[in-house]
C-alpha cells in the first residue's frame, strides 16, 4: 500500500503543471476513479481543508490522502513522493531550465496544455459537484459562492471560512439537521 501511495503521488508530482487546482483534476481521476481511495465528497472536503491549513494545497492533499489510506507512514510517504520529482528536476537542472523554456515551440506546447488543463478542471469540477454536493441548498450555496468569487476580489481562504460559517449558522437556525444533507 505504501508503495502504491508513493508511486501514485510521485506520478502526480511529475505530471502536474500549475497549482493545486490543476492537480485536483488528476487527483479526481487517480484517487476517486482509479484507486477508489476516496469518494468525490471526501476529495471536496480535502480541497477545502487544504485551503484553510498552512502550506501549499498539493502537499496538504497528499498528506491528507496518505493519512487516510495508510496512517502516519502513508502521510509521510505521500508527502515526500509529491515533492520529489520537482526537487530532482529543478535541483539538478536549475541552471539549464531558463534557456530551455525560452524556446518558442515550447511556449506553444504549453498554451495547448493550459487549454487541456482548463477543460480537465471543468470536467472534474462538474463530476465532483454531481456526486459531492447533492442537496438543493448545497448547490444554491455553491452558485452564491461562485458569484462572490467572480464579482468580488475575495481571498480564497476567506471564501472557505465564509462557507463554513454559513454551514454553522444554518445549523444553529435549525435549517440543516443533525445529519447535514450534503
Amino acid at each position: 500500500m505504501l508503495f502504491k501511495l508513493f508511486s501514485t503521488f510521485f506520478y502526480l508530482g511529475a505530471i502536474t503543471f500549475g497549482g493545486g487546482y490543476a492537480m485536483m483534476a488528476l487527483l479526481e481521476h487517480q484517487l476517486v476513479e482509479k484507486h477508489r481511495w476516496l469518494s468525490s465528497e471526501e476529495l471536496l472536503e480535502i480541497t477545502a481543508i487544504a485551503q484553510i491549513t498552512p502550506g501549499t494545497i498539493a502537499i496538504n492533499a497528499a498528506t491528507f490522502v496518505g493519512r487516510r489510506v495508510a496512517g502516519i507512514p502513508g502521510a509521510i510517504v505521500s508527502s515526500i513522493a509529491i515533492v520529489l520529482p520537482p526537487l530532482l528536476i529543478v535541483g539538478t537542472l536549475a541552471s539549464y531550465l531558463p534557456q530551455f523554456f525560452g524556446q518558442e515551440w515550447l511556449h506553444n506546447a504549453f498554451m495547448g496544455m493550459r487549454y487541456a488543463v482548463a477543460a480537465l478542471i471543468a470536467h472534474a469540477a462538474v463530476s465532483m459537484l454531481m456526486k459531492g454536493v447533492t442537496s438543493k441548498l448545497g448547490r444554491a450555496l455553491f452558485l452564491l459562492a461562485l458569484a462572490i468569487l467572480i464579482f468580488t476580489p475575495i481571498h480564497p481562504l476567506l471564501m472557505i471560512v465564509l462557507g463554513g460559517s454559513t454551514g454553522i449558522a444554518l445549523h444553529a437556525l435549525g435549517i440543516i439537521g443533525n445529519k447535514a444533507e450534503a
Partner: peptide
C-alpha cells in the same frame, strides 16, 4: 454543518480556478 458549508465554497473555488 461546517463541512456542508465549506464543500460548496471549495466547489466554487475549483470552478473558478478552471
Amino acid at each position: 454543518a461546517f463541512f456542508f458549508g465549506i464543500k460548496s465554497a471549495a466547489m466554487a473555488l475549483i470552478f473558478y480556478a478552471g
